[in-house]
Design a protein around this nucleic acid. Sequence first.
RNA 1: GCGCCUGUAGCUCAGCUGGAUAGAGCAGCGGAUUUCUAAUCCGCGGGUCGGGGGUUCGAGUCCCUCCAGGCGUACCA
Length: 579
Amino acid sequence: MINFKIESHLQKAVLSAYPDADPTRILIRPCPDPKFGDYQCNSLMNLAKGMKKNPRDVAAEVLKHLDLGGLGDSPEVAGPGFLNFRISRNALSHVMNEAFKGEHLFYRKPEAVKSFVVDFSSPNVAKTMHVGHIRSTILGESISRTLRLLGHSVVSDNHIGDWGTQFGKLLYGWKSILDREALERKPVEEMERVYKAVNQQCEQDETVLEACRNELVRLQSGDTENRKIWESMIQLSRGEFDRIYQRMDVGFDVTLGESFYNDRLISLVNELEDAGIAEESKGARMVFFNDHPELKNNPAMVRKKDGAANYMTTDLATLEYREKTWQPDEVIYVTDSRQQLHFKQLFAAYRRWKPDTKVKLTHAWFGSILGEDGKPFKTRTGKTIRLSLLLDESIERAREIIEQKNSELPEESKEDISREIGLGAVKYADLLQNRQTDYTFSWEKMLALNGNTAPYLQYAYTRIRSIFRRIDPEDWKTIVAQGKSEDLIILEREEEFQLAKQLIHFGLVLEKVIEECRPNHLCSYLYELAGCFARFYEHCPVLKAEPAEKRSRLAICDLTAKVLCQGLNLLGINTVEQM
RNA sequence: GCGCCUGUAGCUCAGCUGGAUAGAGCAGCGGAUUUCUAAUCCGCGGGUCGGGGGUUCGAGUCCCUCCAGGCGUACCA
């Protein structure tokens, strides 16, 4: 909060000193070492370089025009031209008091509210969800939640794989080797078994492959029986997806699968051809990007030589539909890194097709999931870890620790707590990593319950709640009411000061998360916040403090709990009262 | 062949427009509990940021080159 204000004062000062300067390039950031101050500005050195002036002179000139309005003393010029700001404790406690009055929770609403479509998770019908779906699902959910909190509007869309050549094999298997009882019990597992079995048959027997193709053609041409089977495959799969989403607390505004766009595909290809965007090549219809250095050798196919459309066509139709229906400012796709080329092609083709579009297209890609041997998971033949079993295992491990640490809790609480701890651990382990690095899957890491993990953050929260259980709720009500009109928070100890400084950075971090679609920044922030709180907790007794100090510390605890809870919520992680 | 990505402590990873002495967790070792939950806190050791060159006040970060690995590269999605 204070940083935003300082930044804006500084930008004003730069503009009055140098009217031609670009103020958006004048930024401040927290100092890496507190001995320099609280915030630093490095931008004046770049500004000076552009003007071929001495950076320290430029800094001095800017300082002449700078008015911080009581946020801190005039900054020092250090080294080659850093500006070091030291904020006043008054300014800091003022922001804390504002927050305690309920005016904000250390973040600001954006100047312009935008609308987004976020495309994530996208599992395939007739396949179980496995660890490979974690990243897209959790990242997408977290990005959506963060956008919404900042006031943007979001349509989350689960673009499920409910159409394609795999249905030929599935239909063939459904009719020949389906085990009805197994289907009843575990529908998706049974469909997956059927698919694998048919796949094997196809490898050995050409006639089976041919029969599968026939089933596919019949489905595509609207055959009633195949259509009905296909529909039940979707229904059964979606039932199972929904159970997992419910468990993981993930939700979608719409679930429009690939098949939803079938009716648009043929006309779309014709349109592209008429516009001279797509052309015939080797029997297929292609979009060439001759003036595009990177895509020059990578044309996009919008129609196969057999006349069928493919996923490029569907994605174009999908994007068109999204723009027409929701008029988003930005569409964010959360998929794995291997689809980078596909999305570059898609975006380039779409822009050629719709030259007037203003929509921003973002591919928020993430690294592959690797096995413990460092090799990627194989979707067809290799073993995968089912998502539902991973969640079970994590909850089970959390349960064991609860039995060990806090066995006197009532049974029902134990169940709730182990669920939230277990799920939180899995989610956090994933979100903590920069999405762009490959993911080395390990049980140990995924399910770790100490160190930089969700349980650590949840634990910090329960310590705060434990303090509040020990005070009279009526007293607390009085303090809250008093806090509306009076400034109750006084920052005296170094630990209080550090904790407050961390709290006010919440908004800075949320904006960074949005800008880069990277919730790992939020994870790091919350871990540091919990660390600051732990130090505060060790050194600043709350309940035994003098009345004024006690009120202040209770208020600090309350704000910390709120930020922890809100931050964890953005990661899709719930807090618990005890653990 | 071309393109994209990765290479940072024993292991797993952070490192924000290029910024000040490269940071966490785990593992190891040593401390702290008559105290609001020790699922905690404090301390110690541990690095040629893959190699080399360049740009500049300043490079883990940008450019070039080499090495190693991964992924993609027209009829799977």
